[in-house]
Simulated scan of single mutants.
Amino acid sequence: MKKIFFIVLISVAAIFPQEMRKNAAYSLFSDEKASRVGDAITIIVVESALATNNAETKSGRQTELGFDFSGTMDKTKLPEASLNIGSGNDFKGSGSTKTSGVIQTKISATIDSVLANGNLIIRGSKKITINGEEQLISIKGIVRTSDVRADNSVLSYNISDAEITFEGNGIVSDVQSPGLLTKFLRMLF
């Protein structure tokens, strides 16, 4: 009886082969990691940026041309002539910019597609509204499955071709933008 049961079990396994990768999510011995289209993944955004740019330009140019004529002839005094032409040009300019920013948050994302090499294309966004000020954080990029941690999260600096957008809309952003008259005068001058 045991022999027949064993033969039937092997026959059923041979008739219905199973893909190990597909069933790995149901294993008692492996972690369930996001790896299929539609799976959720947590992105831990830890980004900081600092950029400084200084520029200084100084140029000068000066041209002078002079002509002087004076003299006498047989005790007759000739008229004196003098001609001086000068030109000058001086320019000095300087400017500097400094930008810094830090973003730390967690965003839930989903897998849009899986590339042929197994890498995952992910996309997610988070919208926060506080006192009428709306902030939208969007992120998309490519993640290697080996960078997905056991808790189904990935750090933002492990995302290749990452596009992280942080936009604000509301009272604070309205006050920071120039008015219509200022915009019009900038176009003219």
Rank of each mutant, 00 (worst) to 15 (best):
A40W: 05
I41W: 05
S82W: 12
G179H: 03
S125V: 14
V143L: 11
A24F: 03
S35A: 06
T57L: 00
N89S: 07
F69Y: 06
K183A: 11
E133R: 04
I164M: 08
T97A: 07
I142F: 08
G88T: 08
G132H: 09
Q135M: 12
N117G: 00
V114T: 10
R21S: 08
P79L: 04
I7V: 11
V46N: 14
I159N: 02
A55S: 15
F67V: 15
G86S: 10
S146I: 08
K58I: 15
T57H: 03
T110C: 04
L181W: 10
G132A: 04
S113Q: 05
P178I: 15
N23I: 14
T129V: 12
R186H: 15
F29K: 13
M187G: 06
A24Q: 10
G71V: 10
F69I: 08
S108C: 09
T57S: 02
I43H: 00
E163Q: 10
I159V: 07
K58A: 15
A51W: 01
V172F: 01
S153F: 03
K126A: 15
T72S: 07
F166Q: 04
N158A: 12
T105C: 02
E56L: 11
I139D: 00
L9Q: 05
F6G: 09
A150I: 04
G95F: 06
D112W: 08
V12L: 14
A25N: 01
S108R: 08
G170S: 00
L65Q: 13
G38D: 00
G124E: 07
P79Q: 04
T97N: 12
G38E: 03
G101R: 03
N131D: 13
S113G: 00
E80R: 13
G86H: 00
L188Q: 02
Q135L: 13
Q62D: 06
I107F: 01
V37L: 03
E167N: 13
I142D: 08
S11Q: 09
S70I: 05
S27L: 09
K106D: 14
A49G: 05
F6Y: 11
R186F: 01
Q62S: 11
I44F: 00
V37S: 03
A81T: 14
G179W: 06
Q104C: 05
A81H: 12
L83H: 02
T165V: 02
I7A: 12
L120S: 06
R21H: 01
S94G: 07
P17W: 00
V37Y: 05
I137D: 06
L181K: 13
V102R: 15
L115H: 10
P17L: 01
G66Y: 07
Q176W: 06
A109R: 03
I111G: 00
G66D: 12
V148N: 00
S82F: 04
T72V: 12
K183S: 00
I85F: 15
I85V: 15
L136F: 02
L188D: 01
L83Y: 07
D39G: 05
K92I: 06
F91Y: 12
K75L: 06
K58P: 15
S113M: 13
K77S: 11
S87E: 14
A49H: 10
G95R: 04
S138A: 06
L28I: 11
I122R: 05
G179P: 10
S27H: 13
K75C: 11
Q104F: 13
K126D: 09
